[in-house]
Design a protein around this nucleic acid. Structure first.
Length: 266
DNA sequence: ATGCCGTGGAAACCACGA
């Protein structure tokens, strides 16, 4: 089972790229962020015609998240992150696909920091941690995938010293992310590739992609009950080089169908 | 180092992204 996350930076502007990527890589589940489309402008037909069931949480101009499942309809479990009824941003959607629970998230950017936007980011992070704490110890598989807007460590950024005061890399942000991992979540890509430079985002300008001046900010976190099934993980970085690309590339994990720790008792 | 680009939406610029 392949599960991917992709910040599309406008689902309508990205539709040809999205459909091509879906067709070429055939992920089973996809989390999309930054739809930048109101609820009634989501390209539902095009996505269903490509073989995917879909639920989405749109918003005019900004934000917006969607969950796609190949050949089936995701069953909505949560719309919006609990903890603040006044938060109108469409940044969280959760669904059950078979036995797997998938949370699709678009964590606030938080710049400039310090300031109200950074405060909002940290507050949103706290709500995510509270919600994640209720899911991490489930016996069933849970995946929290999306654009975290977090550079976890020096290895995840082309030039760390330039990002020390940025909301994506500040100590408070990294501490919040590591707090999530301390609950027991596994950063899938980093776990399988502990030493490798892996980026998921390259700026549109300054030839960032050509220079490989990237960031790793899109993550898939697995709860312990599914972590033993993690068999592969990576970034479809070539997609970033396609015409009319998003500034992010898709990130994915492959989960084996059977738990390798199951089997004869030791 | 800088929104230098990209997108949406409301106006022929501005907000926002990371």
């Amino acid at each position: 089972m392949k599960i991917a996350t992709y910040n599309v930076n406008s689902v309508n502007a990205r539709l040809p790229v999205l459909l091509r990527w879906l067709s070429e890589t055939q992920p089973d589940v996809v989390c999309l962020q930054e739809l930048k489309a109101p609820q009634d402008k989501f390209p539902e037909k095009a996505i269903r015609d490509s073989g995917y069931g879909v639920i989405w949480h749109g918003q005019k101009s900004y934000n917006g998240v969607a969950i796609l499942a190949r050949g089936r309809d995701p069953v909505e479990a949560q719309r919006g992150l609990p903890g603040d009824p006044g938060d109108m941003h469409s940044r969280y959607l959760e669904a059950t696909i078979g036995k797997v629970v998938v949370g699709c998230l678009y964590l606030p950017n938080g710049n400039p920091a310090p300031g109200p936007k950074f405060d909002y980011k940290l507050a949103w992070f706290e709500r995510l941690r509270a919600h994640a704490a209720k899911m991490v110890d489930r016996d069933s598989p849970v995946i929290l995938a999306g654009d975290y807007n977090v550079i976890p460590a020096d290895i995840d950024v082309y030039k760390p010293e330039r990002w020390v005061n940025d909301a994506l890399f500040r100590p408070e942000t990294r501490a919040a992310y590591h707090g999530l991992l301390e609950q027991g979540w596994i950063d899938a890509v980093r776990t399988l590739h502990p030493e490798e430079r892996i980026y998921t985002y390259w700026d549109y300008f300054r030839n960032a992609y050509g220079r490989d001046a990237g960031l790793r900010i899109d993550h898939l976190l697995l709860n312990p009950s599914i972590a033993p099934r993690l068999s592969a993980a990576g970034v479809d970085r070539a997609v970033r080089g396609w015409e009319q690309s998003s500034d992010h590339a898709p990130v994915w994990v492959e989960l084996s169908d059977t738990d390798p720790v199951d089997g004869p008792a030791q």
